[in-house]
Design a protein around this nucleic acid. Structure first.
Lengths: 185, 185
DNA sequence: CCATTTTTTTGATATAGGTCAAAGGAAGCC
DNA sequence: GGCTTCCTTTGACCTATATCAAAAAAATGG
C-alpha cells in the first residue's frame, strides 16, 4: 500500500493538500538489521512502511532484547513517545527486512498539523487505532495462556509472525523462547 | 481541576472557542456504583471527571469482573473504542464514588472536531497521553513481578489505590486478590 | 561448501502465583 | 445495634511457565 493511498483512505484530503503533505516525506531504502533509533536517543523521524517490516525493542536489566511492537506494511513506525515529546527513546527501532520507507521529521509534521485541520484529524485517527491495538495486546498478555497469546500474535501480525525469529515473538508475547517453541508444536 | 482549566492547559483555545466547547458539555452528578455503560451497549458519552472516580471492567468467561482501567479527577472517562466507533462496548463503565462529571455526546464532539482545528488537536493530545499510559501498564504487566506491579499501581493512581476494593486493583493488575493481599503486608 | 554463528528444540528441575476453602473484619441497612 | 452482605486475610496445595543446560537444525559468510 502506498502512502498516498493510505492517507486518503483515512481522511479526505484535497489533491493540493495531499501533494503538499507527501512532499514532506522522504523516500528511503533501509537494509535489514539497520537500527533507526537507539535507546536513549531522541527519535527524529516518523516512518511509513511501504515495503518491509520492523520492530521496537529494549534491553531489560539482564541485557536481553524485549520486543515491544512489530510494524508491518502500511503502518507508521516510530518510537511514539520519543518522537512526539522529543524525549530520549525507551526503545530501539530496528528494520527486520530490507525495507522501503517514507520518513518525516517532527518539525515537518508539526507544521502540517498546524497548517491542515485534516492532518490533525489524521494524527488523531492513527493514534486512536494504535491505542485500540495496544489494548488488544494488553488483554492478550494479561489474561490469556501462552497458547492463546500466540494465537493473538498470528491474528494481529499474520504477515510478520512467520518471518521473524521466534525469540523476537516470544519476548513480544512475554514468554521465553523455549515456551513458544513447545507451543508451536 | 475544572474542565475549562484542563482544556486550556493542553491547547490555547480562544475565549469564544472555549465557551462554545464548554456549552456542549452537560454537568451531571452521578452516585456511587452507578453504571454509565454496559458491556454490549454503545457508549454514547464521553465524561470528564471533575470530582470522583470510576473504572471500566468486563466480565470474563467465568463471570468475574476484570478491571480494565481507573479514571480519576481531571481525566476523560469513556469506553474509547465504543464511543469513537459507536460500536458495542467491551466494557462496563462504573462510577466508584459519588462524582461530578461533564458529559458530551459523540455527535457534539464530532461537530467540535470538525469546527475547530484546535479541538482536533486536543483530541490527538488526549489520545496520545492515553496511549503512553497504556504502554506503561503493559510494561508493568508483562515484565514485572506482582510486587512491582502493585508499585506501578501506586505510582499511576496514587489517589485511587487506597480508595477502591482490593479486588478491583488485583484484577486490574492481572493477579488474584489473595496474591495482592499477601503482597500488601 | 565448509566453518561459524544463530536459531530452535528438547529435557530436567524450580518457583511465582493460582486455586480452593474457610475464617476474620468491616460496612451498610432495617 | 444486631443481621447480612461484602471485603480481606490466611493456609494448604497445585500448575503453567521459567530457568538452566545442551543438542539439533538452520542460516550466514568467506
Amino acid at each position: 500500500m502506498s502512502i498516498s493511498d493510505f492517507l486518503i483512505t483515512l481522511v479526505p484530503f484535497t489533491p493540493d493538500e495531499l501533494n503538499d503533505i507527501l512532499s514532506h516525506f522522504k523516500k528511503e531504502s533501509v537494509a535489514k538489521n539497520q537500527i533507526l533509533v537507539r535507546q536513549g536517543d531522541v527519535c527524529k523521524f516518523l516512518y511509513f512502511i511501504e515495503h518491509g517490516m520492523g520492530r521496537s525493542y529494549y534491553l531489560n536489566e539482564n541485557g536481553k532484547e524485549i520486543t515491544q511492537w512489530f510494524f508491518g506494511v502500511g503502518k507508521f513506525m516510530t518510537s511514539a513517545d520519543s518522537f512526539f515529546q522529543q524525549s530520549p527513546s525507551l526503545y530501539y527501532l530496528e528494520v527486520l527486512q530490507d525495507s522501503l520507507v517514507y520518513s518525516i521529521s517532527k518539525e515537518d509534521i508539526d507544521q502540517l498539523f498546524a497548517k491542515y485541520h485534516q492532518m490533525e484529524k489524521l494524527g488523531r485517527l492513527v493514534t486512536t487505532e494504535m491505542l485500540t491495538k495496544i489494548v488488544n495486546k494488553l488483554n492478550a498478555i494479561q489474561f490469556q495462556t501462552a497458547k492463546e497469546r500466540y494465537d493473538y500474535m498470528l491474528a494481529e501480525f499474520p504477515d510478520i509472525a512467520h518471518q521473524v525469529p521466534l525469540g523476537h515473538i516470544a519476548s513480544y508475547l512475554g514468554m521465553t523462547q523455549e515456551t513458544l517453541s513447545r507451543i508451536r508444536k
